[in-house]
Structures are given as C-alpha cells and as structure tokens.
Simulated scan of single mutants.
Amino acid sequence: MMISPESYYEQYIKGKTKEQIRSAIHGLKQEMGRLKNTMESPDYVQEPIVHPSEDTSIHWTREYLERAKLAYVQAGGTYNLSKSEEKVVDFDANTDSICKITFSIGGFFGGYRSYVVEISDNLKAYTKLWENVEPLALLDTDNDETFTKSTFISALADLYIGEWRRSYSTQRFGYMVCDGTQWELEFEYNNGHKPVRFNGDNSYPYNFDKLKMLFGINDTEEVEDE
C-alpha cells in the first residue's frame, strides 16, 4: 500500500539533516530508474496479483521525490538539477507551445503509419500510411468525449514524456532484434523552440501503451483486422 507524500515526509524525511535528505533523494531516483527498467525490459510480464503495480509505484515514487526535494530546500540545501532533470523541466515548460505532434510507428515491410495532431486554437488530427491520409478522431476514453486542446495537452502531460530517454533499444538489455517495430515521436513548437524527438527500435518507454491510447491505437483491434 502506498502512502501520501505528506505521510512519506512525516515518516521518512521530517527531522533529517540535509545530508540525510540528499541521500533519500538519491535512493528515490534509483528506485524510479529500477521500476522503469523493469517495465521496459523485453522480459517484463506484469503480475496481475502484485499490488501496487510498478506503474503505480512509479507515480508515487515521483511524488515522494518532489516532496523530498522541497524538504531539502527547506532545510537550507540548494538543489541542482541533473542534465536529465533539466531536459524534463525544459520539455514541461514548453508544453503549451506545442503546435504539432507526429507519432510514427511500423516496420520495413508493412510501412510506417503516422498519427499527426496539429494544435492551434483547436485540434486537427489525421493518419498517414504511404500516400493515404485519413481523419483521426481523438477520444478521451476516461470521460467518454472528444478531446479538446486543453484536455489533450493535459492528458499528454500526464505521460511525463519529458522523463523519457531520447532513444530506446533492446541492446540496453543485451538483446539484438532485426526488423520488428520502430517508432518515432516528434514535437514541434510555435515559440522558436527546436523540435524534440524520441524514438525506439523494438523497445519502448514504460507507459508507451498509454501514448498509443492517446492516439486511438488499439492493438486488439489491429490484430482482429489482420
């Protein structure tokens, strides 16, 4: 059972020195990395009876980490962002300036389908496969309604994409896979920020399925269509 960030603070942080809090922050970062590596491994199989799930544990560990950082500053420490944290802050700070998202996924033989979302005052979404272009309906399945600009950006923020690696490969886990599935996710901005890209070769972020759901990709339906 996970506890609230304030309960975590009361039990594990309150009354600690700056050095002890810094050590707790380091431990939480390591735990976040371990959980993500577990879910991103090609050998990962989610155990339905495990509570909390790794995904839930990642969520709460992130909350504990932010509370520990705050406590560190309150204790007189100066928290310096790592390079990876700087990338997260930069990505999050520019979320409202995203004007186009292109998500491409597929393989050499079947081609790559692109899911494109253009963001202005409204959303314009469509898919492209070879030369075929089709409109794409973006549905907020949690609320059973069509996404608006604000709800789509909010759902995007909930994925914490800024925390993702820029590139994913099975070689990280000692595997070599030929062909298979490749993907790329690109963000373009209207404020002069250079495009940000993420990609993978048969390897994916821990919450990749949630990204696909955001674009209306249902693997079950695709299998049935085949």
Results as ranks from 00 to 15, higher is better:
residue 85 E to I: 03
residue 187 F to Y: 11
residue 79 Y to W: 09
residue 67 R to A: 03
residue 111 G to L: 07
residue 42 P to C: 05
residue 221 E to D: 07
residue 28 L to G: 01
residue 24 A to F: 05
residue 206 Y to G: 05
residue 122 N to H: 14
residue 199 N to P: 06
residue 223 V to C: 07
residue 137 A to F: 04
residue 25 I to G: 06
residue 155 A to I: 11
residue 7 S to F: 11
residue 132 N to P: 05
residue 152 F to C: 07
residue 88 V to C: 02
residue 101 I to M: 12
residue 35 L to M: 13
residue 194 K to V: 13
residue 117 V to S: 10
residue 173 F to S: 01
residue 54 E to C: 11
residue 218 N to D: 15
residue 170 T to W: 02
residue 1 M to S: 09
residue 13 I to E: 11
residue 9 Y to E: 04
residue 147 F to W: 15
residue 50 V to R: 13
residue 32 M to F: 01
residue 62 R to K: 04
residue 201 D to G: 09
residue 17 T to F: 07
residue 131 E to N: 15
residue 160 Y to A: 06
residue 88 V to Y: 15
residue 75 A to W: 00
residue 164 W to S: 02
residue 50 V to S: 06
residue 170 T to A: 09
residue 86 E to G: 15
residue 113 R to I: 14
residue 84 S to K: 09
residue 174 G to Y: 15
residue 117 V to C: 09
residue 2 M to Q: 12
residue 61 T to M: 02
residue 104 S to L: 12
residue 127 T to V: 03
residue 209 D to L: 05
residue 21 I to G: 08
residue 145 E to P: 00
residue 124 K to S: 09
residue 6 E to F: 13
residue 16 K to E: 04
residue 142 D to Y: 08
residue 151 T to Y: 14
residue 15 G to M: 10
residue 212 K to M: 12
residue 64 Y to L: 09
residue 55 D to M: 04
residue 74 Q to R: 13
residue 137 A to G: 00
residue 81 L to S: 03
residue 19 E to M: 06
residue 67 R to F: 02
residue 164 W to L: 00
residue 198 F to H: 06
residue 170 T to H: 14
residue 167 S to H: 15
residue 92 D to A: 13
residue 41 S to Y: 01
residue 215 F to Q: 00
residue 38 T to M: 07
residue 221 E to W: 10
residue 77 G to Y: 03
residue 17 T to I: 02
residue 32 M to A: 03
residue 182 Q to A: 07
residue 177 V to K: 07
residue 141 T to D: 07
residue 127 T to W: 04
residue 72 Y to K: 01
residue 152 F to A: 11
residue 207 N to R: 15
residue 117 V to D: 13
residue 74 Q to A: 02
residue 49 I to D: 10
residue 161 I to S: 08
residue 183 W to R: 01
residue 81 L to T: 05
residue 78 T to H: 08
residue 48 P to S: 12
residue 124 K to A: 06
residue 7 S to I: 12
residue 29 K to I: 09
residue 47 E to A: 10
residue 194 K to E: 15
residue 182 Q to V: 02
residue 222 E to S: 10
residue 72 Y to H: 09
residue 191 N to Q: 09
residue 8 Y to M: 01
residue 161 I to K: 04
residue 38 T to E: 08
residue 104 S to M: 06
residue 195 P to K: 00
residue 49 I to G: 02
residue 168 Y to S: 03
residue 46 Q to Y: 03
residue 4 S to Q: 02
residue 167 S to T: 03
residue 130 W to M: 05
residue 223 V to W: 06
residue 41 S to E: 01
residue 216 G to R: 13
residue 145 E to L: 10
residue 35 L to H: 03
residue 221 E to P: 06
residue 126 Y to E: 15
